[in-house]
Write a protein that binds this DNA or RNA. Structure first.
Length: 355
DNA sequence: TAAACGTGGCC
DNA sequence: TGGCCAAGTTT
């Protein structure tokens, strides 16, 4: 089992910026724990394609965990903008600072010790321990759950099946090359043992796969039904000074989009747009609607825009000068608001005859 | 245990 | 086009 999987991995390992190839590992090279940690946190519930550029930018800007620990919060949050699950970025900084302050800038080498760090749960602790430190830790992500559920024809729906799948996965973990084994299981799930239309005919584990023998591979793992998403409504005030400064506010540390920049506006509720006071005096015009879907609800945001007086002190938020403001520093829903407001203002300028 | 927590791609 | 899905963690 393990032999067939590792042989497959040696020939098919995906190339990624944070990964050391099986050949280079055989030559004695070890992955940098910092890069393994950073990539694993970014990859939580996030696709490889989405992570690539973020990983590059982070490691270019902060090459070591000490560099990251010394970074300003706002810089890190801005660099994470668009990647989602912003608690990861907050915990990333906390973790880097613990490593720098309490561990001499070196990552603990065991899954048990890693597990106590902010933002590192069972999956990430096992992944770092196995990949960076060669500990035979068992990595269980969505890919592994799917591979194991099929391999052993586990029909219990997730998340109830989690414990059983973890035990089965642990039985498969070898003492030799645990890091490559972990990555092989995940690569297999990502490229062969896929959620839909699994490529069983070219799978290195097909002869051992119980679900394939039963003809139910594509139906596993079973999942409990998900609750329906409600729709919430709100207002976003996209205000700009004539010199281009944007009126933004830093959102509270906890909760949705915590610690990120956003446009002022009232609470979001399931009843139609609750009226909210504008953050500054001005001629606020409704410029349209932004629709956005979060993990657990749909959002319809009424966007109001205005050109604001330079002298006016805002009642909420603060002006960010044009040279310090990049729309890419905003979480996606707030960037959508920005884009809509800018398009509306450009249309007004154009309709005015332009210059 | 269940709910909160983002986003983009795919079919 | 809307739900599913992606290398989960925290509370």
């Amino acid at each position: 089992m393990s032999v067939a999987l590792l042989r497959w991995y040696d020939a098919n390992a995906r190339v990624m910026p944070w990964r050391v190839s099986p050949e280079d590992i055989r030559l004695g090279q070890r992955p940098d724990p910092y890069r393994v940690w950073l990539s694993e946190v970014m990859l939580q519930q996030t696709t490889v394609a989405a992570v690539r550029d973020y990983f590059r930018r982070f490691t270019d800007r902060w090459p070591t965990v000490r560099d990251l620990a010394a970074a300003e919060d706002a810089k890190v949050m801005a660099e994470w903008a668009g990647l989602g699950y912003y608690a990861r970025a907050r915990n990333l900084l906390k973790c880097a600072r613990v490593i720098a302050a309490d561990h001499g800038g070196r990552f603990p080498a065991t899954a048990e010790a890693l597990l106590s760090l902010p933002g590192i749960g069972p999956y990430t602790a096992a992944a770092i321990a196995a990949i960076a430190f060669d500990e035979p830790a068992t990595v269980v992500d969505g890919n592994v759950e799917r591979v194991v559920a099929r391999l052993f024809a586990v029909t219990t729906p997730l998340p109830a099946a989690k414990r059983e799948l973890t035990e089965r996965a642990a039985d498969l973990t070898p003492m030799a090359r645990p890091g490559d084994h972990a990555q092989a299981m995940m690569d297999l799930g990502a490229t062969i043992c896929t959620p839909r239309n699994p490529a069983c005919s070219i799978c290195p584990l097909s002869s051992a796969c119980r679900a394939r023998a039963l003809g139910i591979a594509a139906d596993l793992p079973a999942k409990s039904p998900k609750p329906v998403k409600p729709t919430r409504h709100g207002i976003a005030f996209a205000g700009f000074r004539r010199d281009g400064a944007a009126l933004l506010e830093r959102r509270p540390e906890r909760g949705l989009l915590g610690g990120m920049l956003g446009w002022p506006g009232g609470a979001w509720s399931e009843r139609a747009p609750a009226e909210a006071p504008p953050p500054a005096a001005g001629d606020w015009r409704r410029v349209g609607e932004v629709r956005h879907t979060f993990t657990h609800f749909h959002l319809v945001l009424e966007v109001r825009s205005a050109l604001l007086d330079t002298a006016a002190a805002p009642a909420a938020g603060h002006f960010v000068a044009a040279e310090h403001f990049r729309p890419a520093d905003l979480p996606t829903v707030m960037r959508k608001v920005h884009d809509l407001a800018q398009a509306a203002m450009a249309a007004v300028e154009g309709g005015r005859g332009g210059d």
